[in-house]
């Protein structure tokens, strides 16, 4: 049992470090939040959305703005380590590198969820539709978990290229398509009051994505970071 506890502790330390950095600097989440709101406004005008938005459009808009905003956070979480060569310090630490993946993944998950929690009442206000429902929050947790674990993996890839963080969206968006489709569709179903039986394949797909991408991180993060 002891190695497991030590492993979990390492994950927690990394997550805690990221949250502390964010808490002291407050440079990540506010930017993500403002960016998400800007995306909402841009889409509102670009697509001429009415206030009586259908459930499908509202959930689509929510997920697009979350996905865009999350990309900023993902890039930041890896480039922060790069800036002061903090990554070398992390890599020198005698810990399993996959623990770094899970730690980073969890902190990214927390930041994106925070943005989502603030976005939900704003959406309810803008589009006159109560979006603060428990099932929807559950779906957001699942979808964001899948998205940020894949995103953390790919951010570690893209940060090693010459173009750095520019590459992340190009790698992430096509691979994240199944997550986005499943998340948008299940949110839409919840918002329009469908029964769980009609949505379960989407929810299972999200669970499968969470499992698959975390397994990929567990297997490959070590390989990605080795130099």
């Amino acid at each position: 049992m002891k190695p497991l506890i030590r492993y979990l502790n390492t994950i927690w330390q990394i997550t805690r470090k990221d949250i502390q950095v964010e808490w002291r600097g407050r440079q990540g989440v506010p930017v993500m939040l403002v960016f998400a709101l800007l995306v909402v406004f841009l889409f509102n005008f670009a697509l001429q959305l009415s206030p009586e938005l259908q459930a499908g459009l509202a959930s689509g808009l929510l997920w697009v703005s979350l996905a865009f905003a999350s990309t900023l956070g993902l890039n930041r979480s890896v480039s922060l380590e790069r800036e002061n060569n903090a990554m070398d310090g992390l890599l020198l630490a005698p810990v399993d590198r996959s623990a770094i993946f899970f730690g980073k993944s969890i902190s990214n998950f927390a930041f994106t969820c925070l943005v989502a929690i603030i976005l939900l009442p704003v959406f309810s206000l803008f589009y006159q539709q109560n979006m603060l429902s428990l099932p929807l929050i559950g779906i957001i947790l699942l979808g964001v978990a899948a998205y940020t674990s894949l995103g953390t993996l790919l951010a570690a890839l893209s940060i090693q290229t010459r173009t750095r963080d520019v590459l992340l969206p190009v790698l992430l968006y096509p691979l994240a398509l199944p997550i986005l489709i499943a998340a948008v569709e299940s949110s839409r179903g919840v918002l329009s009051g469908q029964a769980f039986a009609d949505l379960q394949s989407w929810v299972y797909l999200l669970v499968a994505c969470v499992v698959l991408f975390n397994a990929a991180g567990l297997m490959f993060f070590e390989t990605i970071l080795e130099e």
């Binding site: 993996l153 199944p178 489709i181 394949s201 989407w202």
Partner: peptide, 15 residues
């Protein structure tokens, strides 16, 4: 990772 997501993509679009 890419080849792993192809079935997921196909399944999600089909659904």
């Amino acid at each position: 990772v890419s080849v792993g997501t192809v079935p997921l993509t196909f399944f999600s679009i089909r659904l």
